[in-house]
Amino acid sequence: MTGAQTAENATVNTVLGPVPAQELGVVSIHEALLSVVPGAEYAFDITLDRAEIFATLAEKLQDFRRHGGGTIVDSTGMFHGRDVRLYEALSRTTGVHIVASTGQGPEEMLGGYFLTPQTDPPTPWPAEKFADLFAKEVTEGMVVPRVERRGAAGLVATAASLAGMTATDESLFRGAARAALTTGVPVSIRYGNDAVRDLRVVLDEKLPAGRVVVGGLDRRDAVAAGAPIKVAALGAYVALDHVGTEDDAHVTDAERAALVAELIEAGHGGRILLSSNATGVAKGHPANEVRYSHVLTAFVPLLKAQGLGDEDVQRILVGNPRDLLSTR
């Protein structure tokens, strides 16, 4: 069944151009390369040394590749430090495919241009305008602010506020779904306080569930609510995307491995994705220092201990993300 959904000639948008989907290899679906809290680039006590950032990221990507990794998805969107030109150089240098994302969110992370525009009254942007902003990053290229467009975004990433989806978050979700529909790239959502409810917002836009990945489903609240199984049952991809993080908000790796086995048992093996939400370089916020290779080095053995065979592991690490990322 591996690859059953991916056409022979399917491609994925990487920062170096479209790549045959069959060449992605092992994919980490939710990671951050350079992660900058909006505004931190102006802070007097924060420096952005491109050469140093490059060296740090290159070492981490090489480590990922050495352990069998093929593709990193930078799911930070268009306004959290994304640096397309740097990612092109990193991909060329390390041989790791890099898929960059458009999108933004949650509301708190937006610039005032979208929230209090210079109109009377200052009505926040509606879904349609976000859809256009995001879609153009796929069809015309990703923005290097006020300079140029480069490459094509490989997915649309957005997020809802942790306290619960706001009206503007909903516009972002609907806009992301519409951009995905018109361009053929998938949508990555991070839910607020109710994964299933937030997923239904993008499904309400008639986006097929198989074009959506729901991140953060290894949060304790999601697991307690049975959200991973419910999301998979709706046909969306379930991302357990904090592998390596064990804290108050997230389940442990052992619990994640058990959850993977449970999902497979329930017939959802074709909907599982794994990632670590690692931040290669973080500015303005604490880094998640887990290695991009953590899933391969530390978590796959836990899956094997749960009784998963090589075919299951390959499906989760290679087949599922390939199917999701292939443009339609």
């Binding site: 268009m78 306004f79 610039g111 005032g112 241009y113 209090t116 210079q118 153009k136 923005v143 602010p145």
Partner: peptide, 10 residues
Amino acid sequence: YGMPGSELDT
């Protein structure tokens, strides 16, 4: 003058 984020809108 441009509101923050306007730099993303070509």
